[in-house]
Design a protein around this nucleic acid. Structure first.
Length: 603
DNA sequence: ATTAAAGGCGCG
DNA sequence: AAAGCGCGCCTTTAAT
């Protein structure tokens, strides 16, 4: 059962053991195989154990040699370990890494990886909605979604294919960094879901009551919404106006002489009619009720914890997505409901202007780096005399990264081209490549998807001798769209890489903080390694600072009060180290806005 | 009756 | 109704 003690294992591949006795019955093999590999990916040991023995096995290996655990798919393996009180330090997530390697421009020979189609699949994520029906629905739907194989032989084969692809890549170091960061993101997502965001249900309910009135019975509309709706109907002089149907509402608006082409907020704001103000309020109320009302609270918050489902790598650019609970769209209005446990603090930190800083760093644009050094980058542009106001700076910079050509933005962007030729050159050429149908890559080598068949047909149709002006228009628009996509891809994707590096490093730093004693918050026991901390009987996250929230350029850490300063320092150090790791000594800094408080009251 | 698309708005 | 990127979620309406 134990490995021959030659070199310590660098990698431990985990998978289901082939189960001869049950011969494929429902695929429910209860044995797990763990294969130890050395640095050269040679097998140096094999272990076979029961599923229930896995946590203890992992715990002891974390104490012993801390290998990189190779998983088919982190959500398939890690939640059970966490539930058993075991954290790991590093992993390699074959599903996430496969998705990168099969597209990366850095990979010169991707044949083997690309052929392994069974590794192109969605994550298995444990649904967390406590409601039975919802749970059933989700499971039903998920059962049709392809998942990656979880058996040991498939994992070993895929790991071997991927290792070859990386070794032969044009810049293996960069790619390895990306794969490690991506995998660490998988761990963070699983841990954050397990820990949950401390959520003050009473405060949330208070906010709802303040905006909407007290919780109504069943699915009735809350009192304040009904009142506001009546105001709108009165102002429109249309007692039967339906505010919930944009088609009917648009009709009512026209009948009242309000000339709008749609019922969107943006357009309504242009109008001065007395019905507009209450209508906008009604829309805001309606949004709050349907998206984050009492129903949401019942479904996603339990025992004082909000547990959204994160999907690392869910966006092609490398950003995370979410697949339940709306983690990426918690309205600022509800931020006060994020509240630390008694005796704990929330440390919120976000990077100011992450994307333009990532652009400055990757393009080596010294002037742009200088504009942002130690200060708000937008104010820096004003100080350098490039634009007149901070607002103009923001419009110009966003316009440059998104590819706007008209309006204020289109007017301001050219000034950046003069001041920041390197940065603008980078995004302009990314756009050029994309508009011709090419692919582009982030700093670490994540590559954009090539445009689809439909896009290519459009372009070739426009090049036919009998092409109509419509053909040409459509093709030109599609080319422009693709160009703006690739323009933004390199920036958004590189920023996502910085954020992943930040998260990964922060996670390790927090894991090295001492645990505090539950019963006696003053006492801290020093120096325990991650994975040795929790007992099977105790929650993993109850005794030490840990990540609870991540949103593109922002983290929230939940920490015992006496550890809050140390956690804040870890966040700052992790940011500095992420910058160094990705960009070396490029003169770009990534300043944080950081606050320690009991509530995450922002915005 | 079920599914897909569209409109709208929240987040970065 | 966005101009100008990337998402998820909810509701209504259109399509099958």
């Amino acid at each position: 059962m134990t490995s021959p003690d030659s070199a310590p294992a660098a990698w431990c591949v985990i998978g289901r053991a082939p189960d001869r006795a049950l011969g494929g019955v429902r695929g429910m093999g209860s044995m797990i195989a763990v294969v130890d590999l050395d640095d050269a990916r040679q097998r140096i040991g094999r272990h076979q154990l029961g599923v229930d023995e896995l946590p203890e096995f992992v715990r002891s290996r974390e104490a012993e040699d801390r290998p990189r655990w190779v998983f088919s798919d982190t959500p398939n393996w890690y939640p059970a370990l966490l539930a058993a009180g075991v954290q790991i330090e590093r992993c390699y997530d074959l599903r996430l890494t496969h998705a990168i390697l099969m597209r990366s421009e850095l990979v010169t020979d991707r044949g083997g990886v690309a052929a392994a189609e069974e590794w192109e699949a969605g994550p298995v994520s444990a649904p967390t909605a406590p409601e039975a029906e919802a749970l059933f629905e989700v499971t039903e739907r998920r059962s049709h979604i392809k998942t990656v194989p979880h058996d040991i032989e498939s994992a070993l084969a895929e790991f071997s294919r991927q290792s070859t692809a990386v070794q032969t890549a044009s810049d293996p170091g960069r790619l390895r960094l990306l794969l490690a960061a991506e995998s660490a993101g998988g761990l963070v997502a699983a841990e954050m879901q397990a820990a949950g965001v401390p959520w003050d249900v009473a405060e949330h309910d208070r906010i709802l009551a303040e905006e909407l009135g007290p919780r109504p019975a069943r699915d009735a509309k809350p009192a304040k919404m009904l009142a506001v709706a009546e105001e709108v109907r009165a102002a429109l002089d249309d007692p039967r106006a339906n505010l919930d149907s944009h088609v009917k509402l648009l009709h009512s608006l026209h009948a009242a002489g309000i000339n709008v082409a749609s019922t969107s907020k943006w357009e309504l704001e242009q109008s001065e009619h007395p019905a507009i103000a209450p209508l906008l309020q009604y829309k805001k109320q309606s949004r709050l009720l349907t998206a984050n009302g009492w129903h949401w609270l019942d479904e996603w918050v339990s025992e004082g914890r909000y547990r959204p489902v994160y999907v690392p790598g869910g966006v092609v650019t490398g950003r995370w997505a979410a697949s339940g609970g709306g983690a990426l769209q918690i309205p600022r209005q509800l931020r006060p409901a994020l509240r630390a446990d008694p005796g704990w603090r929330l440390i919120s930190a976000d990077v100011a202007q992450l994307e333009p800083r990532a652009l400055a760093a990757m393009s080596g644009d010294a002037a742009m780096a200088e504009a942002g050094r130690g200060r708000d980058l937008y104010s820096g542009l004003v100080a350098e005399g490039i634009v007149g106001t901070r607002q103009e700076a923001k419009i110009a910079v966003l316009g440059a990264m998104y590819g706007s050509t008209t309006g204020d933005s289109g007017r301001l962007v050219p000034r950046l081209r003069t001041s920041f030729p390197a940065a603008m050159g980078l995004v302009d050429s990314a756009a050029e490549v994309g508009s011709r149908g090419g692919v582009v890559s982030t700093w670490l080598g994540r590559t954009s998807p090539a445009p689809g068949e439909g896009w290519r047909r459009l372009q070739s149709a426009a090049n036919q001798f009998d092409a109509t002006p419509q053909d040409e228009n459509r093709a030109r628009r599609a080319a422009g769209d693709q160009g703006r996509f690739t323009r933004n891809f390199v920036v958004q994707g590189t920023a996502a890489e910085w954020a992943l590096a930040w998260l990964a490093d922060l996670r390790l730093r927090l894991g090295r903080l001492p645990t505090v004693d539950d019963g006696n918050p003053g006492a801290a026991s020093a120096g325990e390694a991650m994975g040795n901390v929790a007992t099977a009987s105790g929650p993993v996250f109850s005794r030490r600072a840990h990540l609870v929230f991540f949103l593109h350029d922002e983290v929230i850490v939940h920490a015992p009060a006496q550890q809050a300063e140390a956690a804040a320092e870890a966040i700052r150090e992790a940011a500095a180290s992420a910058g160094k790791l990705l960009f070396g000594n490029a003169p770009v800094d990534f300043p944080l806005d950081l606050t320690i408080s009991e509530r995450a009251a922002k915005g």
